[in-house]
């Protein structure tokens, strides 16, 4: 008994984990299947666009600005070891649009939006508002999940694009003020170096991260436990799951896009 207890505990953990993955996969499939079937809730969708997109602009902008500036400083310092300081504009740009723009943008939006969706829907669950929706002949998946997931898939790439631009601008500010670059040369080097797919791949990542961000918020909110502690736990789990999944998806997508 004592010998097998740790094995049993490990087995239970693995089974619980697999069951969770299965439940999330089924939930994701259900949400996607409802996207194309009426009724649609345009007002909920527009509200989600506003909440997820517009109100996330300041946090994504500031994160990108400081990251772009720091990146330029690091690349200058690292490049100096090989006499490659001139690569600052191009490497800053590629680093921002391929990796840091989507990943940091995704993580910041996850912190802001996943938590808020999970807490809102979790509170709705605890106060029986989700049951009330059902009794009023409204499918909670269609009313709560679909508008948020679709909005996030569409607006997170836009946030990533804005973040990319501001991040590159952050590098440019540091470049011309502190590292002695000429402004027009910096911009020319950036624009000439970047290829369409450098930017495009980051935007595709943004859409995938948007899906994860909203899905995790809605899933954990709808499965929230009772009371304030239940909602708190749901919110925490949603943000942790979204963050880990964003980083894992980033690796997988990078491997698919640039692995060869």
């Amino acid at each position: 008994m004592t010998l097998t207890a740790p094995l049993a505990a490990l087995g239970r953990l693995v089974l619980d984990m697999l069951a969770s993955i299965g439940r999330i996969a089924i939930f994701a499939f259900q949400v996607v299947s409802h996207i194309f079937r009426p009724p649609f809730y345009p007002r909920e969708f527009l509200n989600a666009v506003l909440q997820i997109g517009w109100f996330s602009l300041p946090v994504v902008g500031l994160t990108s600005l400081f990251t772009g500036g720091a990146l330029a400083l690091q690349i200058y310092a690292g490049g100096a070891r090989y006499g490659a300081e001139a690569a600052v504009p191009s490497i800053t740009a590629i680093g921002m649009v391929r990796e840091l723009g989507p990943v940091l943008g995704g993580l910041m939006v996850a912190a802001r939006v996943t938590s808020s969706i999970a807490a809102e829907i979790g509170t709705m669950k605890v106060t029986e508002q989700i049951d009330a929706l059902t009794t009023l002949s409204t499918n909670p998946l269609k009313y709560l999940a679909v508008p948020r997931v679709v909005a996030a898939v569409l607006v997170v790439p836009v946030l990533v694009a804005v973040g990319d631009s501001i991040g590159i601008a952050g590098g440019w500010i540091v470049g011309i003020n502190q590292l002695g670059f000429n402004s027009s040369t910096y911009i020319k080097n950036t624009v000439n170096f970047l290829q369409f797919w450098d930017i495009g791949s980051g935007l595709v990542k943004g859409a995938a991260f948007g899906f994860i961000i909203a899905l995790m918020g809605v899933y954990h909110g709808m499965n929230s436990g009772r009371g304030a502690q239940g909602v708190g736990d749901a919110t925490k789990s949603a943000v942790v799951a979204a963050s880990v999944l964003i980083l894992a998806a980033n690796f997988l997508l990078t491997r698919v896009f640039f692995g060869s």
Partner: peptide
């Protein structure tokens, strides 16, 4: 159905809560 805590939708105005079913389907 009248729920124990009311279960009114916080994000909607009172009239929108009352008319919720009338605005669906």
């Amino acid at each position: 159905m009248l729920f124990q805590g009311g279960a009114l939708f916080d994000s909607l105005r009172v009239w929108e809560n009352v008319a919720f079913r009338l605005r669906q389907g």
